[in-house]
Design a protein around this nucleic acid. Structure first.
Lengths: 203, 203, 203, 203
DNA sequence: ACGTAAGCGAGACGGTACGTCGCGTCTTACC
DNA sequence: GGTAAGACGCGACGTACCGTCTCGCTTACGT
């Protein structure tokens, strides 16, 4: 198998596109786990053996789809560290908006992957990626920060999951607000905290 | 099959216990997806057909394990709403401590279910349960609260996922702090917000 | 198991009778092979474990039914050898009539056992019994007989199967003639031969 | 499954041959009923699942074996009716010889199928085929024949079973005579009748 | 433009696991 | 002691997918 080596052979590109489309359309119908390679081949109107010429298994196919999507996201985000000692707010706000816009662009896919019948591995991966990105940015700002009020790793895990949770709600609610507004809400949750965001008095 | 109807037949109770233990021990070794019914039967030293006399499939077994665990958790938590108009802090703090203690009591199981190779469905279920519990408590306090700064449903999804994220970190880090301390940190994250908890200036 | 030891316990006799009736009624519906012990127990309205207290398996049950039936047949037939050197005709005719009458008495059972979905082992056993009975009678008359025109064992196998064939036809055709007439026809087939019985010229 | 459609795929033909050989060899050891599909697969050195790609179950396999064998027999026999009004003797004699030769060619198979542990369904099918063949030939000659001495259908059932009985004896006795001689004896039994063939006086 | 190497369809095959069924044994409790 | 109820070990069933493997066809590419 020559997995992701890009080819300009039309037949190959056609086959891969058909398979990725088939994956999304089938995940919408029955979730990732319930899909079989035979299903994918039928939907893509290719032979089952041909599938194996391009992907190791269905998880491999999913992963390559995500590779593409994540690469695109990473490319669109602003570079990590701003000037030291300055609040990272505006940058974070921008990046959150970009995140929501990216997710909106691939809404069907993300909706499926994050939802009930999504792929558990995907969520774990996305969570790890978010935590890592957060860690990188936090490390860069560290010298200029006050003492943390909770273990930073815990906070990073907290944020990463929380962002995914907010995204999940946003997708499952049918994107009730535009990406910029949703990003602003999320930023509020991160900065003032969810408790106060609910209207609770905080001491 | 009469799934979870409690029986006083000793053989039945023995068989079910053996199977639940086998599930946990096998999940620790290779994760949920990689387990087969034959594996479970072998580990539990029962016949494979006997497995099907008690559970529909391995997902059913997992679910019933979780039913028991969740029921115990729910029983240990304090009842939802305190007196209106008073800060719910102390209660929330207590409940978070109880939550961490409960998770610590079943640490191996929760560690597996929340981790990389855990069962996606479990996380979704836990998240929904947390969000629902949060919603119930929030509804009760609603009249006494200020205007929310973000859509409350979004906030609830945010919190539910965030709590799981914090728990996940705590378990994967090997429970570096005792439950009460971890609960206090989590409470901080929820109240002052993760951003400030990292030491960031918030303007 | 205490197989065929006759009991005067009413419950036991009732159970056995119910099982034998169930066997016949189920064989009529789906043939012997397709019956399960569970079927027998349900139809007889007894517990499955009780079946095993009386019979080893369904073949055992069938065999014991046949034992009874064959014992009754054997008792009704005339004793083997007549006076030497005299044609055995009249005796044979009588015995064939008794045979048809016996079969008519148990028509449903014989019909099933000899038919398409019958029990192969039963046919083999009946054939062997007929051949043995024929052999006994032939041995007794042997000194008084002319030289055989074909190997006697072949002839005995021929007759045994042929009689079963005639009985099978008679039962499947719905007993179109009374037992005495059918016996006379069968005697004709045995004595003048089936070829001439069809009206064929024999040289 | 496309059961017996002839294929030119070598692998397919090899698999089917292996299975048919395995069937015969296993039937010789324990009879048809006691064989499992796993046994067949092991003996044929194929995977069990592959069995099901070719045959519905073991009965299907047996049936297709018989199809082949019967088709060959039918092809070798002379066409039904000669000139009307002439004794059918010579033709019948020829066909009986061909029958014995055919059976001799597949002696192991026929021996098993007709014997104690054979397949009841096979005997029923063979009996019906013989009766049908006899009926066809008799219908063709009917106008030229004298009145029958017994119901012709009874006679045909009688002959069909009788021929199988003679064949069974011949095979179980280890083919003590050559096919031509055995056929001559069988012809005698059919024409002069088994009674006289035993040396009995017939009036 | 066209020959040729590749991608591809078709499908047999060895495997592994599935969920079901029926067997015969057994334990427990009832009568 | 016969019976009902039913758990259990066992083993076979027929099915579903897996990933691998020919075997020809056809199709897009490279010279």
């Amino acid at each position: 198998m020559s997995p992701n080596q890009p080819t300009d052979d039309l037949r190959v590109r056609r086959t891969r596109k058909l398979l990725r489309d088939a994956l999304v359309s089938l995940m919408a119908e029955r979730g990732f786990e319930a899909i079989t390679v035979q299903d994918l081949a039928e939907r893509a109107m290719i032979n089952r053996a041909t599938f194996y010429r391009h992907y190791r298994d269905k998880a491999d196919l999913l992963e390559r789809c995500m590779d593409d999507v994540f690469a695109e996201l990473e490319a669109s985000l602003a570079p990590p560290p701003p000037v030291l000692g300055r609040p990272a707010w505006p940058l974070l706000a921008d990046n959150l908006t970009l995140l929501f816009e990216h997710v909106a662009a691939y809404a069907p896919l993300y909706h499926l992957l994050l939802g009930e019948r999504g792929a558990g591995a995907f969520v774990a991966r996305a969570r790890a990626a978010l935590a890592a990105a957060g860690a990188r940015r936090w490390e860069a700002m560290r010298p200029a920060l006050a003492d943390p009020l909770a273990p930073p790793e815990m906070t990073l895990g907290f944020i990463a999951s929380a962002v995914l949770g907010a995204l999940t709600w946003w997708l499952e609610a049918g994107q009730p607000t535009d990406p910029a507004t949703a990003a602003r809400h999320l930023l509020t949750l991160i900065t003032v905290g969810p408790y106060r965001a609910l209207g609770m008095p905080v001491a």
